[in-house]
Design a protein around this nucleic acid. Structure first.
Length: 568
RNA sequence: UGGGGCGUCGUCAAGUGGCAAGACACAGGGUUUUGGUCCCUGCAUUCGGAGGUUCGAAUCCUCCCGCCCCAGCCA
């Protein structure tokens, strides 16, 4: 039955059993976002779970917008949600539903409850209702309006719908048990008056159902079999069941809860993400530092990488926090296979090849992928003046530094061996501004006929053909593994000041000029970079760093620097 | 102090009475015209703790400890 390579989990166990026992003959799930924000990587977990289950069990998964609160919801969000789910690779076909489609049916269900003496109109204020609810350890008290007659309740509820009362004047409550130890059973509110236009139903309604009432019944209306939500709804399950038990429903869905995704160095709550956007801490919902799907997309993440990540993290009931390194691993793994290689110099250092003939130019052949020849090859221009990465040269090379240094020979990738013969510095600042090198013409293409080896191969770009570009180096948004805890409510105290470093003087090999927006490539030795879809212009290429490559040298370098700091 | 959940490697996570999968991370080594990729190797005598049942327990029982969720007319 399970034909995918998605790992098993407790929900699959339940479905297997339901199918084996004949409780269900088919599976229907649903992804039920509230259109009040953009989707993030945590939603991706839910999407992959729900759509993945439908796919593997030959069932279907509906997309249903849980739009019962007109005060918070907007069409902008429904549009972005659809785009993101589609981008992730899932298809809800014609099953695009809205809880608001069921408002009339839901209203009738509420009337049914009233007529059965199981719901009443309460006229207590919000504060009074809270007061009457009791506490975690003390039971609540019945509202003085709890025993209104069916007639009176029906009449009042009709007039609520008709708009006769202002917001807050009355609510409809389920009559359950004010002494229930489970607070969600203490006569929960199921309808409130909200004289606000709804993004889909306009001003057709001024009473709106609450989540607990609308959700399970919407599941039932659609024929959902397994309604999967996150752990914080476990207490609500009793209420979910109560409505289904007390109303004449045709289908009987069951709710199951799994642990929501937490990621280190990341916040994943819509409220907090909204705050990052509203306070301009980031540049929008699709800022490449955001864990939103639109942000990850703009960063250069692929749907495959995200889906693989979701498969790897599993589905269970215990609260957990996944290491951000696993997400990074997933994108590197995917991009390693599919990203064509190029050379790009981020922090250029000018190099003049002294023995290379003045005015001469040649093109060299480079592989577009080191192990997959289907990517083919390309020509890269070479000349007397080049740029190399500033980090690839050290005047006083520390131990284990294999790259260029005075007197040292390295290989220019796909080109020649060069040796540094002189260092030119700015007379005022002492800054290295140029390297004078010699090349060995016999090493064209990168191999020495005499078999001699070099310890390092570095990337380069020919000065005369380089294109100028802006490159944005992104890093984690927070410095603390748990930004929520670290900030004690204010996660802004642990914002990473280096989460964005903009480099404006980058030199890229000419082939990169034609690269389509939104495509991700590897700048050899530097990482994966995605051509920006928003700020890029023909005369102003912009690249976003998707991820760095694994970089053992960076670690060694850091350790060495720490060691010298400790001894001095 | 009420109710609902959860505790297996640094982080995720299999395991459902027969003797601790896998992944990431980490640490070594090999290959390499990316200090990338790839390939080897190592990494829980132990499953929150203590008792008990059993020939045998992470799995069953008892007690204890810890963590999460619930007092919106939010979802």
């Amino acid at each position: 039955m399970n034909e995918s390579n998605s790992p098993s989990n407790f929900i699959r166990d339940i479905i297997n059993e339901d199918l084996a026992r004949g409780t269900h003959t088919s599976v229907m799930t649903r992804f039920p976002p509230e259109p009040n924000g953009y989707l993030h990587i945590g939603h991706a977990k839910s999407i992959c779970l729900n759509f993945g289950l439908a796919r593997d069990y030959n069932g279907v998964c509906n997309l249903r917008f849980d739009d019962t609160n007109p005060a918070k919801e907007e069409v902008e969000y429904v549009d972005s949600i659809k785009e993101d789910v589609r981008w992730l690779g899932f298809d809800w076909e014609d099953r695009e539903y809205f809880a608001s489609n069921y408002f009339e049916q839901l209203y009738q269900y509420a009337v049914h409850l009233i007529e059965a003496g199981k719901a009443y109109v309460d006229s207590l204020s919000a504060e009074a209702i809270r007061d009457y609810r009791g506490t975690l350890t003390e039971s609540g008290r019945n509202s003085p309006y709890r025993d209104r007659s069916v007639e009176e309740n029906r009449n009042l509820f009709e007039r609520m719908r008709a708009g006769e009362f202002p917001d807050g004047a009355h609510v409809l409550r389920a009559k359950i048990d004010m002494a229930a130890p489970n607070l969600s059973l203490r006569d929960p509110t199921i309808y409130r008056i909200r004289k606000i236009a709804h993004h889909r139903t306009g001003d057709q309604w001024c009473v709106y159902p609450l989540y607990d009432f609308a959700h399970g019944l919407s599941d039932s209306i659609e024929g959902v079999t397994h309604s999967i939500c996150t752990l914080e709804f476990e207490n609500n399950r009793a209420l979910y069941d109560w409505f289904l038990d007390n109303l004449p429903v045709k289908n009987r869905p069951r709710q199951y809860e799994f642990a929501r995704l937490n990621l280190t160095y990341t916040v994943l709550s819509k409220r907090k993400l909204l705050k990052l956007v509203q306070e301009n801490i980031v540049e929008g919902w699709d800022d490449p530092r955001m864990p939103t799907l639109s942000g990850l997309r703009r960063r250069g993440y692929t749907p495959d990488a995200i889906r693989n990540f979701c498969d790897r993290i599993g589905v269970a009931k215990r609260d957990s926090t996944v290491d951000l390194a696993l997400l990074e691993f997933s994108i590197r793994e995917d991009l390693n296979d599919r990203a064509p290689r190029f050379m790009g110099v981020l922090n250029p250092l000018r190099v003049v090849i002294e023995n290379y003939p003045e005015g001469r130019e040649e093109t060299l052949e480079a592989m577009n992928h080191p192990t997959d020849e289907r990517f083919g090859t390309r020509e890269v221009p070479f000349g007397k003046v080049l740029y190399i990465e500033r980090d690839d040269f050290r005047e006083d090379p520390p131990k284990k530094f294999f790259r260029l240094a005075p007197g040292r020979e390295v290989r220019l990738r796909y080109a020649y061996f060069i040796t540094c013969v002189d260092v030119v510095k700015d007379p005022d600042t002492g800054e290295v501004v140029e390297l004078r090198c010699t090349y060995d013409p016999a090493t064209r293409g990168g191999n020495a006929p005499d078999g001699r080896k070099v310890k390092s191969t570095i990337h380069w770009v020919a000065a005369d053909h380089a294109i100028d570009a802006e490159v944005r180096l992104y890093d984690r948004l927070f410095t603390a593994p748990d930004p929520e805890a670290a900030g004690e409510g204010d996660f802004r105290v642990c914002l990473n000041p280096q989460s964005l470093e903009t480099l404006t003087a980058c030199k890229l090999e000419p082939g990169l000029g034609q690269l389509e927006k939104g495509t991700t490539v590897q700048f050899e030795r530097m990482g994966y970079f995605c051509r920006d879809i928003r700020d890029d212009a023909p005369d102003h290429p912009v690249f976003n760093r998707t991820a760095t490559l694994r970089d053992p040298w960076a670690k060694i370098d850091r350790q060495q620097k720490q060691a010298t700091r400790a001894t001095s």
